[in-house]
Write a protein that binds this DNA or RNA. Structure first.
Lengths: 126, 126
DNA sequence: ATACTATATTCAGAAACTTGAATATAGGTA
DNA sequence: TACCTATATTCAAGTTTCTGAATATAGTAT
C-alpha cells in the first residue's frame, strides 16, 4: 500500500503532524491514560479526542487496555518520543502540557481520583 | 500565526511529511546540491522540484546560494537529520537515495560533471 | 540587445485532511 | 432486563494539500 520507504516515513510524520495528536502523545509520555483523562487535560470534546486516538491507533503508535469502563491508551513505540525530542531542537520550542485539572479536582478518571485522595472504590456504609 | 508550541511543531512536521521533500533532504545530507542535480537524481520535473524546494525554504529548513546559473541549496538546520534518524527507528525502514544518474553520465550539473571526469568549464579550441 | 539556461511562479482541478454534530456501541451496574 | 457510562463511528461541509500544465524571470554569454 505504501511503496517506498519515503512514503512509509511520510505517512508516520503525517500521523503525528497534528497539534491535538502531539498533545495526546505528550500526555502518554508518563504512561497509559484513559480517554476521560485526556478530555479533562485538553479540554476537548470526547468524540474529537476519540477520533484522534483512532488515527494514532491505525498508525500503530498506540494501543488500548480496558479496565472496567475505562480504556487506557499507551504508546507502543516509545522511540516516537526520541523523534519528538529531536524536534524540539529543530523548532526551538518545547511544548508543555496544559495544566491538568487535578488542581480543580474535576478530572473524572479513576487514576486521578486516587492520586487526589479520593478512593478508587468508595465503600460507603449506610 | 501559530499560537501554541504544538502548532509550531505540527507545522514543521507537515513540511517534512512528504515523500519528495524527504528525498530532497536526503540528497542535501551530503552537502549543498543544485536543482538540476535533484532533477537527475529523483527523475522528477524541474518545476515540481522547485515547488517542493520553496516549501522547504518557506519553513526555513533550506536556503540557496547562487553560483553562475546554478542555485545550490543547503540545509540550514542540520538537526533535522536527527529527527529523520530517529524516525528510522520508529518506522523500521531506512530510505535509500535512488541511484544517481552519474552512472549514466547524464546529470547535467557542474558538480557532477567534475566528479565524473568531465571538465567543469570546457575550453574548446576550434 | 538577443538568445539561452536554470530556476521560479501562477493557476486550477482533484484528492486528502480537519472537525463539528449527531448517533451508535459495548461494558458495567442495579 | 433496563439503564448508565465511557468510548467509538458516521456523516458532511469546509479547508488545505497535491501536482500537472503553462508560463515567467533572472542571470549569463554572445
Amino acid at each position: 500500500m505504501d511503496a517506498s520507504a519515503y512514503e512509509t516515513q511520510s505517512n508516520l510524520l503525517k500521523t503525528i503532524s497534528h497539534p491535538t495528536r502531539l498533545s495526546i502523545l505528550a500526555i502518554l509520555r508518563d504512561g497509559e491514560q484513559c480517554v476521560c483523562h485526556m478530555e479533562a487535560t485538553l479540554s476537548l470534546r470526547q468524540a474529537y479526542i476519540s477520533q484522534q486516538l483512532m488515527t494514532l491507533k491505525d498508525a500503530g503508535l498506540i494501543e488500548a487496555r480496558r479496565d472496567g469502563l475505562n480504556l487506557y491508551y499507551r504508546v507502543t513505540k516509545p522511540e516516537i518520543f526520541d523523534v519528538l525530542d529531536t524536534l524540539n531542537a529543530v523548532t526551538g520550542v518545547t511544548p508543555k502540557l496544559p495544566k491538568h485539572k487535578h488542581a480543580n479536582g474535576d478530572c473524572p478518571c479513576p487514576k486521578c481520583n486516587v492520586k487526589s485522595g479520593k478512593a478508587l472504590i468508595q465503600i460507603t456504609n449506610p
